[in-house]
Design a protein around this nucleic acid. Sequence first.
DNA 1: GTCAGGTGTCGAAGCGCTTCGAAATCATTT
DNA 2: AAATGATTTCGAAGCGCTTCGACACCTGAC
Lengths: 330, 330
Amino acid sequence: MRTVTIADVARHAGVAVSTVSYVLSGKRAISATTRQRVLDSVRVLGYHPNAGARALASKRANVIALVLPLRAGMNLPVLMQFATSVVATARQYDHDVLLMTADEGPDGIRRVAASAMVDGLLLMDVEVRDTRVPLLRDLGEPSVLIGFPADAEGLTCVDLDFHQAGALCAAHLAERGHREIALLGAPEVVYERGTGFAERTRAGFLAEATGRGLHAVAVPCEETYDEVASAVKLLFDAHPGLTGLVVHNEAAVGHVLGALRALGRAVPEDVSVVAICPDDIAERARLTSVLIPAEELGREAVRLLMAKLDGLPAGSILLEPRLTIRESTR
Amino acid sequence: MRTVTIADVARHAGVAVSTVSYVLSGKRAISATTRQRVLDSVRVLGYHPNAGARALASKRANVIALVLPLRAGMNLPVLMQFATSVVATARQYDHDVLLMTADEGPDGIRRVAASAMVDGLLLMDVEVRDTRVPLLRDLGEPSVLIGFPADAEGLTCVDLDFHQAGALCAAHLAERGHREIALLGAPEVVYERGTGFAERTRAGFLAEATGRGLHAVAVPCEETYDEVASAVKLLFDAHPGLTGLVVHNEAAVGHVLGALRALGRAVPEDVSVVAICPDDIAERARLTSVLIPAEELGREAVRLLMAKLDGLPAGSILLEPRLTIRESTR
DNA sequence: GTCAGGTGTCGAAGCGCTTCGAAATCATTT
DNA sequence: AAATGATTTCGAAGCGCTTCGACACCTGAC
């Protein structure tokens, strides 16, 4: 069963090879009758263009690389949703997806780029000081990052708008009449690393709360139960009138609820809790939350990458956060 | 920055293009001095072979497709471990991985195979009557399946040996002196679908138990708490002397423990529980368990596929189950 | 000194596709 | 009726690589 080539199609349809190519790519006008004849032959013979040959001749592989941080400890549901969305969206643009793990590091990126195996790259979970970022810059390979590195100048990045997410949570609590609220954030070290999203959430939260004349504080939060409990206790000791809590730390969310219970503060009767975390965690605990829009992230990332492949300029975008109201706020 | 071609390397090293090719592929003997000169040039120029050209000329893409069931409700940790392992192992064989979702279905497989985009396929989560299996058969594309379809004749499959896993659980309980044991399996519909692994576990469990002269029963098990609780209750009503339980249903594991607690049966004091489930679930609940060896599965699957690509015959393999003893059995 | 048989290297022919310039065809205009 | 311009199709030249057959050289045997 020899594979069907474009020459077979051409012969079968009684036209030149180039004509078949033009019918398939639509890059030149072909008369309706010829076009139909060619398409019929394609169908009859079951022709599929050879990817290698096409890539070689056109200098376009029609493949994008998806670089995932496939290490333990990732938020898997988010990652999965994202990957699924990327694959599906890429297919819509007639592209396939090459899966890479972050642990091949910069070399892997250099390799696939230099071998023209992919036309562009999608990097998930970009860190603030990511070693791959400078490489990406001078490699000149079209790419889209999920997350913002320290210096995003000249790069295309997609992320949730954490500033607005923080603000949204503060606003939600304010509208419910809470006057004294707090943000329990990421562990200390995360802020020290200068991780963008933690910092931005905090800024948005404080700005919005202050703007609305609320009394607001933001404190970091470790992830073991004991540390969370003591942080919560300290918070209420210092601010007895606290009635609203925003938790931006998925690992700590459960412990915060436990700690509140231990302190005898009922949710949502005594204190309202808003989480910024993946949907499944919030769903399970019935928490009002701002979710990570993984699917939208994937879709937008691919869209932007495709635009870049077409030579269009593509700026970074921040996705608007959406608050889902559940049972933990009133 | 034009890309470096093999001709550039040849010129730089003062040899013919074919010589460079042979140095790189090792398919013909090249003198040590020439080889070194070529390798130096490769390094100096930063040469990476063009994947498309290579694929076209050699009819080998050096890419394998990984078809994952990226739908909700999958066991994500297992899937992730598996994917990671596949990518890492493939890289060891100098191959890359094209990520596909099962929802492109048979057409997707036909497409990537016909376009010579991949050399072989890895399908995860194969169902008993999988529409892709007949296609795979007559497509003749090298492939390895994770899981066993109804008729595995002529196919290469890799899976945990569920029969032995069931037997292992029964044996473990028998050795601990339990005389009356039960298997809580998958939901009814799963058996009705004829899903292989559920059935095989049950068979192995019953065979081993019976062989050792134990009194054993196997019942299906739904996945909501209420249904699990009533199933557990019915089980103990019918078999008051029951002291050993095997749970082969990851979604129900937690509920089973809850139901036992509700019935006032302590684990492991009154009843020993063995689970067949992913490691993380068992780990969290401190359950003695047989885990799904996702990483090994990925590694073996790639190994088999590579063997097939080299034209070697590759039979199916069943991975030996391993029991991890934790705190739920005595 | 010649010849057989290795080694090591080269040149050229593709692999299947895209794309460019040119040819062929047809419809309009003068 | 010839010339012009559009429209449609063709042919051929690559894209960068692998691989086959051939050539050149060297060794050792006779």
